[in-house]
Nucleic acid binder design. Structure first.
Lengths: 299, 299
DNA sequence: TCTTACGATACCCACCAGGTATCAGCCCAG
DNA sequence: CTGGGCTGATACCTGGTGGGTATCGTAAGA
């Protein structure tokens, strides 16, 4: 029983995601027949049926779902191995350019926290060079999983901490961002019930796992788009308190009393022998008392 | 830049572990020249030097060490993907034989805890079939990492919980196991200082990561061997309290006042969509109050 | 019934993984 | 300093297989 090759995993995952051999082959840059054969061989090798091909589309069997999940994790791990090795090699022999850390953050989120972290870390005696990689929605999480980043600021409940080591750095409430001229904008506080069903101001919808949930609000893809729609009086949004940094004059921010809080964590892969990373994490945990004294006991 | 294949990872890891191309090739069941070529190709592909071959042996570069660690994790992940898929498939269509969970435990450790866990779980209405896989020293951890098991009882500080989700089930002190006829055996309590340097009773040494640490005590590989040597008056051992289950008449157990405690956790891979696993974990956490009320606040 | 769509099959080629034989540097024995 | 042995690299060959094109079988829709 020889081992699963990463190529086979890539192929299967493409098919499992597209649920269509033709499109999957196109995505993989190959013809359809070899892809079909590869999947057949994979099924035979595993002794398991992965896909139900009953005319009218392809569907995943239970085993197929398992392989999709586990295979993604495995592919991420191998991609991470390759990337981290490459990066480690580039600073290996050549005279010793300092170790370099890549931190992934969600663009514009936790901005001042990141600022303080970088400042504090730069003051350390043996600080490594830090590269900041800003990604969209849940992209920082993926960057950490596949080795594009060494460490990330992840935001619960939007990101999953599963499989990472992490420390909580910041807990914040949420605010409703409204058009400044809307009647609700004058309120001192709001509850979720107050805003969940305002006819002329439906809540904007963000993509979740690549798709939009159904609902009345407009679909938005980035902060700029959202900010504009709010300024135009077309929608509102519920965002973490720290999002105040990017508000416009035409916006009003009203604290929500009963929205679930948002937790920002610093997260890193659970092995990781890097001294530079350890230093950064130590620096980060020292920031905690400034923002949330004894936060560890609050949960 | 095409992706790292698992075959290449296997090859590199073999060489990195043996630090010898010939032996690595033998271990892989292949000839040496193709192995050399494969490693060269890998280095070229990654654009990184992985090994220093300066006569007098092969050594890992920094990048090589990174790839060894990350690559092991990646290989474990792909092996886990294959195994979990196979297992999931075998109970997939055929009329619905119940889901089957594999739990890995260290042989003879936490025996009564495991007993209570299995009993409690079996009483659940929708209980899955549970297979118990007993392994040696740190083998349960590896079994969980590479997919031979779905869940494991891991014992800190001997196992690493890195990369797993876990719940602490049990905290216990440690005891010194002595020959019953030794003078120290009559004591009510002992401290580490009392036993760390007894000339006629050196502490037995267990293998750590495949090698024995240097020291005066005899090298032991399993409980039986240890038990016999203790009964013969040749050595003593420091073990968790629950090890009392396997003591002989010729043994005496004396609690240690200042030995670091041992924590038994139930651990599982951090993704895992399995309902059966969720049920088992729920059952396990319900066991906690029986043994260590509000243990979560003790740390 | 004809068309269309999609996955499977048949067949072919080219590449490369792996084998054997051999070379090349280094160490040690004498 | 010279020859043998050890170890990794190189040269060259072969077979398996990954990938391509052409085509088929079948089910759904017009």
């Amino acid at each position: 029983m020889d081992a699963l090759e990463t190529r086979e995993l890539r192929y299967f995952i493409a098919v499992a995601e597209e649920l269509h051999f033709g499109r999957a082959a196109e995505r993989l840059g190959m013809a359809q027949p070899p892809l079909s054969r590869a999947i057949q061989r994979l099924e035979k090798r595993l002794g398991v049926c992965l896909l139900d091909r009953d005319r009218r589309g392809v569907r995943l069997t239970g085993a197929g779902q398992v392989l999709l999940h586990e295979g993604r994790a495995a592919l991420d791990a191998t991609a991470a191995a390759a990337r981290r090795t490459r990066r480690s090699g580039s600073t290996d022999h050549p005279g010793g350019s300092r170790e370099r850390l890549v931190i992934a953050v969600k663009a514009a989120a936790s901005h001042d926290l990141l600022q303080r972290l970088l400042d504090a870390y730069a003051a350390e005696p043996d600080a490594a060079e830090i590269e900041v990689l800003a990604g969209g929605f849940t992209e920082q999480e993926q960057m950490l999983r596949d080795g594009r980043a060494d460490v990330a600021l992840l935001i619960a409940p939007f990101n999953s901490l599963a499989g990472f080591d992490s420390e909580e750095l910041l807990t914040e409430g949420r605010i409703a961002v409204l058009p400044a001229r809307h009647p609700l904008a004058t309120r001192k506080f709001l509850s979720m019930a107050d805003i969940s069903d305002v006819p002329d101001l439906p809540i904007a919808r963000w993509p979740r796992h690549g798709a939009y949930a159904p609902g009345p609000g407009p679909e938005v893809r980035d902060h700029t788009q959202l900010a504009q729609l709010i300024a135009l009086g077309r929608t509102m949004a519920v965002v973490p308190d720290s999002a105040r940094t990017w508000l416009w004059h035409e916006h009003a921010a009203v604290p929500l009393t009963d929205a679930p809080p948002v937790h920002t964590h610093i997260a890193w892969p659970p092995h990781s022998r890097s001294l530079a990373l350890a230093g950064l994490i130590r620096t980060a945990t020292r920031l905690i008392p400034d923002t949330a004294p004894t936060a560890a006991t609050m949960e």
